[in-house]
């Protein structure tokens, strides 16, 4: 049975990025959904009307919430689990049809946007595309597939640029299909013949350019951080940090040192390190991550008040990436702020 839940004004039902498996109907009060436009990054506010569903897409699709659901006035919402929603919907195709219409228009719009973006990178016309599929199958001697495609082309593009080739291929493909069968017979089309593709699968393909040894050492450290080997990563970072500002990766390396200290559970040291770091490099690119780790360190040391302070500052920063802000808000939420 769906449950009715009361929310106080200024509370949050869910945040963007949360994993949620609940679907809601607003019964009374006022709720808005706040999201960012994927093209312009402008804030979009949608007001939920009484009786309206929200949280449907992300719950059914099992992906993270794309918006913040904010309670504007004291509200009551009805909360469905997915099975409860399905059961309710099975008896009410009108609701589903209405949602299908909304979702299909959203899908059509986003699909169109993707296609427009791809078209700018000059894709094949559908006619050329269809012909290229036929060519592929002819090359591979998949006659049945080739014939299907050739016949479709013949029917769809009687004035097409490849029409004369297509009608020439059809009888030959039919004949070869009979005589030789799938994957056999002489080549009909000059394609890239099996080009001895027998590189042993264990060796990486080498690349021409070589990096400077300084860069190599830095990236080695980043990789080690990635693998959770902080002690070894620190060994690689130390010489870079000692080299000082002359090293092209000096600042980034200092940043990585902090991550290592945190990873090793040395929270006091992490705090000291990053506090000094921020004084010297207040405009560091990944400042958001630095603040977040500071907050985490305070939390680990049991200093919730300081942690809250750091997260609040982070959440209010304007020049910071969306991911860090989201992380900060989530952390604040779990601290019960």
């Amino acid at each position: 049975m769906p449950r009715a839940i009361q929310y106080k004004a200024n509370s949050v039902i869910y945040f963007a990025g949360d994993q949620g498996d609940k679907i809601y109907i607003l019964q009374s009060g006022k709720v808005t959904l706040r999201s960012l436009d994927i093209e312009t990054n402008d804030e979009i506010i949608e007001v939920i009307e009484t009786g309206q569903f929200f949280g449907v897409k992300s719950a059914l699709g099992r992906y993270p919430r794309e918006d913040d659901a904010l309670v504007i006035r004291d509200s009551q919402v009805l909360v469905f689990t997915i099975p409860e929603f399905e059961q309710m919907a099975a008896g009410n195709s009108r609701i589903i049809l209405k949602m299908l219409k909304v979702f299909s228009s959203q899908l059509r719009r986003i699909h169109q946007k993707v296609r427009n973006m791809l078209a700018q990178g000059r894709l094949m016309s559908t006619e050329d595309g269809l012909f290229s599929i036929a060519q592929y199958y002819l090359e591979k001697k998949h006659y049945q597939e080739a014939l299907y495609t050739l016949n479709r082309y013949k029917k769809l593009y009687p004035q097409g640029a490849h029409y004369s080739e297509v009608v020439k291929y059809i009888p030959v493909a039919e004949q070869y299909a009979q005589k030789y069968g799938h994957g056999r017979g002489p080549a009909m089309i000059s394609g890239s013949e099996e080009s001895g593709n027998e590189v042993p699968p264990s060796k990486p393909i080498p690349t021409p350019e070589e990096e400077s040894p300084e860069e190599a050492s830095y990236y080695e450290a980043v990789n080690l951080v990635g693998q959770g080997d902080y002690t070894k990563a620190l060994e690689h970072l130390k010489p870079i940090v000692t080299a000082g500002e002359a090293h092209p990766r000096y600042v980034s390396s200092l940043f990585e040192v902090g991550r290592c200290l945190f990873g090793l559970g040395q929270f006091e040291k992490t705090l000291k390190h990053y506090q000094g770091f921020l004084q010297n490099f207040p405009d560091f690119e990944e400042k958001g991550e630095v603040f977040f780790i500071l907050g985490q360190s305070f939390e680990k040391l049991g200093n919730k008040e300081k942690a809250k302070e750091v997260y609040t500052r982070l959440a209010a920063m304007s020049e910071i990436d969306e991911v860090s802000i989201r992380k900060a808000k989530k952390a604040l939420n779990s601290l019960g702020a």
Binding site: I38, K57, G61, H111, K113
Partner: peptide, 9 residues
Amino acid sequence: FTKRIFDQR
């Protein structure tokens, strides 16, 4: 559709 919308976005 929900999955496709997400993937396309």
